[in-house]
């Protein structure tokens, strides 16, 4: 009898430990219930997409709230993957996103080092300028960028988009990276320079490897920004062969009622690259972001 209750008690201890002495088990239970409810709210809409994507074609518009239908099928995924225009959207998005993110982070990581280590004239004005660029409504740049693209012949070509995307996340990346470089002691570079490398060599061999968390975050932000961009793509890429997935899916959604299942399947597939990146960088997310963007 006593042993039994001991097992139960140690089970409770396992579930609630480690704990603060001041929290009663009841209070901890309440906290867990609140957190579980919030998690359900956070994940549920996405689970519904999963559910729709798994439904067979004749039951797409069901009023059932069941998450995994009894007759689940991957039919919708197969149909979407066989559509060569879906593959085109994915190809376009991947190509443009990977190249411009790499270029953007490279530019930002170099510039942030200059801003972090030297108090050159115009530095403060430059940082304020960076902040001000974040205040400009994207929609405000749309009209001039559109008119300029027409006049420069950049509509329906990759050239203008590549440049615009490479630069668009640079201010945010510089802020993040500069904040992170600031926390790395200069003495480390000086030591490396005594050992015979140049200033830039020290940056490359010492500072950059130490900044992996913030570099990862900057890349993640560049990637998601470009991958998810609708506005710039919408005004510059108008011919179907240039469509990225947001444009393609928007067009697909025009026939929303009929293609609900295919739309859901496509949505899940375009979410995969971003989710993988988030998962890979999740351990750096909080340190990389906080040290960078937030400086008192």
């Amino acid at each position: 009898m006593e042993q039994n209750s001991n097992v139960i008690i140690s089970g409770f201890k396992w579930f609630f430990a480690p704990r603060r002495r001041s929290d009663s088990p009841f209070k901890r239970m309440i906290i867990h219930i609140i957190l579980i409810a919030l998690c359900v709210a956070a994940v549920y809409p996405v689970l519904r997409i999963v559910s729709v994507s798994l439904r067979p074609g004749n039951r797409l518009l069901s009023t059932s709230l069941q998450l995994i239908p009894d007759d689940a099928t991957f039919e919708s995924f197969r149909i979407v993957l066989q559509k060569r225009d879906f593959l085109l959207w994915i190809w376009n998005s991947l190509l443009i996103t990977i190249t411009t993110s790499l270029l953007g982070v490279t530019i930002a990581s170099i510039s942030a080092y200059g801003v972090s280590r030297w108090h050159f004239p115009g530095r403060k004005a430059g940082m304020i300028f960076l902040l001000a660029t974040q205040m400009i409504p994207a929609a405000m740049l749309m009209v001039p960028i559109y008119i300029l693209s027409i006049k420069l012949g950049l509509v329906n070509s990759w050239r203008g988009v590549v440049i615009a995307y490479s630069v668009s996340s640079v201010p945010f990346s510089i802020w993040i990276l500069k904040g992170y470089y600031d926390t790395i002691p200069v003495e480390l570079e000086q030591a490396a320079m005594i050992d015979g490398t140049t200033r830039l060599g020290a940056f490359y061999r010492v500072v950059l490897p130490l900044s992996t968390p913030s570099l990862a975050i900057a890349f993640l932000f560049n990637f998601t920004q470009v991958w998810n961009d609708f506005l710039i793509a919408r005004i510059i890429l108008q011919r179907a062969e240039f469509f990225t997935w947001p444009l393609g899916l928007q067009r697909m959604q025009g026939q929303f009622q009929t293609q609900w299942g295919e739309f859901a399947a496509a949505s899940l597939m375009v979410s995969v690259p971003v989710m993988i990146l988030f998962q890979l960088s999740s351990k750096w997310l909080i340190s990389g972001l906080t040290l960078g963007s937030v400086k008192g």
Binding site: V43, V46, R48, S267, S271, V274, L285
Partner: peptide, 19 residues
Amino acid sequence: LLLFPWAIPQIIAVLAWRG
């Protein structure tokens, strides 16, 4: 789980909510 809404592409999330 709580960071989930941030990780999925915004347009997908918005169109799902619209549904």
